[in-house]
Amino acid sequence: MAGIYIHIPFCRQKCYYCDFYKTVNTSLQLDFIKALKSEVNLRKNYLNNESIETIYFGGGTPSVLTALQVAEILAVINNEFIVNPNAEITLEANPDDLTTDYLKGIKQAGINRLSIGIQSFQNRHLEKMNRRHDSAQAIEAIENAATLGFSNLSADLIYGLPDLTQKEWEESLDTMFSLPVKHLSAYHLTYHEGTPFYTWLKKGTLKELKETDSVDQFNTLIDRAVANGYEQYEISNLAKDQLYSKHNTAYWMGTKYLGLGPSAHSFDGNSRSWNISSVEAYIKAIAGKNSYFEEEVLSEKDKYNEYILTRIRTKWGVSEEEIEERFGVKNAQYFSEQLSKYKEAGVLQINDRAITLTRKGLFISDEIMADLIII
């Protein structure tokens, strides 16, 4: 069992908060697709013929691709890998790209799950973030996708935005829960160095939301989501009817995956590799048969730390028994010692099967993870 991630680095315009690798130079699109197809061939043995259970188009903005280009990429992957006929195949998309014709085209190409970048249903905040769509387009995109047979729909929201009021946040959630969306990813705004939001924050022209307001918005998110039939299965991810993101869940559970495209990461169980974060350099390196990625072999300490950092975020949690089995008695003893300080703090749910974060623990998850990993 394995997954494939495809990084589509193109955006028609850049959002002011985003630090993922992207470019607005869409004139490189055809050369990029040629290089991407070559990379598929170059790395076809990376996953050792394991069945591909998930394919994920991320970005950037993957919906800048035409439906034919999506089909072309999937055809190459299907030719080089053993893809489960029931594989989850996700495309991240901007609402304004999801016209009826485009939805029909990508569905025919093989996309069976959409992750739609809504971020807010408040037009003033969409404008502040430099998003391309408005609230009406977001609602229309979701409704059209559902009408055309996309039953596995995910959407993103951001809370903790500058000047986001509790009333606006509740209105955005109410709108989201009125729509046929089975999966919600809700993230607190992070000010990443190099983004306009970060620059404006440092200059004082943008003011960060008070922490108490952010906490209130998080609690409102969880309370309203649960009341509407969603299950929080990871710190920032909620799902109805157990329609978890299979692709992201595989990351958290330590499953192998191959990353294709500039800045994409790969993991084979023993090492990690990451592609160069430049579409121009990526295209040139592959054309010239030169190296385009770096690799790191993981130590046992690295593997233990990654297990802690990824699994404790989820509803499946971590297991002392599994730690001893996978990482040895010494690491299990260290984990037990570090865990002891939290046993009476009400931040962890501890039973025979797993150790998970409580609601209280979610607020100090970074602190707990920092204590449990090995420096």
Rank of each mutant, 00 (worst) to 15 (best):
L157Y: 05
Y230A: 00
E127S: 07
P162T: 14
K210C: 07
T205V: 05
S178H: 10
D213P: 01
E208Y: 05
N123F: 05
D156W: 09
A138L: 03
D216Q: 05
H125K: 14
Q217C: 01
W169S: 06
T147Q: 14
A155R: 01
L206W: 09
E171D: 12
D174H: 11
Q166E: 13
E143I: 04
Q137T: 14
L201W: 06
I235Q: 09
E127R: 11
A136H: 12
Y230D: 02
S185I: 08
V226M: 10
R131Q: 08
S135H: 08
L179W: 10
S178Q: 08
S185P: 02
E170S: 11
S135C: 14
K202S: 01
N228C: 09
T205W: 12
E171W: 13
L221M: 15
L126T: 02
L201E: 13
N144G: 08
T147Y: 07
I158P: 00
S185K: 01
L173C: 09
L238Y: 15
K128H: 02
E171L: 13
I158T: 10
A155S: 09
E208W: 03
N130G: 05
Y244E: 01
T147S: 07
Q119N: 11
E208A: 15
A227C: 06
D223K: 15
V181Y: 05
N237C: 12
L221S: 04
Q217G: 02
T165R: 07
N228Y: 10
V215L: 05
I142M: 13
Q232H: 02
G160I: 10
N152C: 02
D216W: 14
Q119H: 14
H188D: 09
G149P: 08
F177N: 02
A146T: 10
A136T: 12
A186N: 00
S151Y: 08
F177W: 03
L238W: 09
S245P: 13
L153E: 04
R132E: 06
F150I: 12
V215R: 07
P196L: 08
A145Q: 01
N130R: 11
K202I: 04
F218T: 03
A145D: 13
P180T: 11
A225C: 12
N130Y: 03
F177I: 04
T175G: 10
T199P: 00
S154K: 06
R224P: 00
P162I: 10
E170K: 07
T175A: 07
P162A: 04
L184K: 03
E231L: 09
D163A: 10
Y233T: 11
